[in-house]
Simulated assay, not measured.
Amino acid sequence: MTYERIFVRTIQRRAESVGFGALKRSAQIMNLASEVKSRFAQAEILSTTTDPESVEISFPKTKEVVTVTNENGRYSACFPELVRDGRGGWKEEIGYSEGMLIQGVMWVLSQVDRNGRVEPEIID
């Protein structure tokens, strides 16, 4: 049985118990997981949850994990990020962004897939 079929059955059972709104939000996470698999063939979906609606995505090449959560049609994400430290250098830490559209999520995922983290637009 494929991952998508298992997930669809889980969503259907949950929708019966909580109503249509939850089904719509869960469908958004399922669509996100499908979109990730179609754009990033090497990406692995580690887990999905329906309360809250979230998906964990792993990139084996970079060994990094991104967690994406659906919040009323907008997404938030936790991801590795390159930031300035207090001494003018660079360090990697966990970044967080909220209120993103699907395009923003895909941009974050493409950065993590390519670089292993989200990097600033300009690095001096």
Rank of each mutant, 00 (worst) to 15 (best):
V83N: 09
P80T: 09
E53C: 14
D51H: 12
Y75C: 00
T49M: 06
G86K: 07
V68Y: 01
S47T: 15
N70Y: 11
R74S: 04
R87H: 07
T49Y: 08
P80K: 04
P60M: 06
T50I: 14
K91P: 01
R74P: 00
D85K: 00
F79A: 01
T50S: 15
T48A: 13
Y75F: 06
W90K: 00
V66D: 07
F79C: 03
N72D: 12
R84H: 11
T67D: 10
I57V: 12
N72L: 12
G86Q: 05
W90R: 01
K61D: 05
S76A: 11
S47K: 14
S54T: 15
W90M: 04
G89T: 01
R74G: 02
R84P: 09
S76Y: 05
E56R: 15
R84C: 11
D85E: 03
S76R: 11
V66I: 05
V68E: 06
T49P: 06
E56I: 12
E53P: 11
S47V: 10
K61F: 03
K63A: 04
T48I: 13
T62K: 02
P52E: 10
I57Q: 08
D51A: 15
T67S: 13
T69P: 13
K91R: 07
E81M: 01
S54L: 15
T67L: 13
S47F: 11
K63G: 04
E56P: 08
E81D: 02
R74Q: 05
V83S: 04
P52T: 14
E71Y: 12
T49C: 09
R84N: 12
D51M: 15
N72K: 12
R84G: 09
R84K: 07
V68W: 00
A77K: 03
K63C: 00
T50R: 14
P52Q: 13
K63Q: 03
T67Y: 08
S58D: 13
L46H: 12
S47Y: 14
N70R: 08
E81N: 06
T69A: 13
V65F: 12
G88S: 05
L82G: 06
V66N: 11
V66L: 07
D51P: 05
G86C: 03
N72S: 13
E56K: 15
L82E: 01
G73N: 10
S54Y: 15
S47M: 10
E71N: 14
A77S: 02
W90E: 02
C78L: 11
T67E: 13
P80S: 11
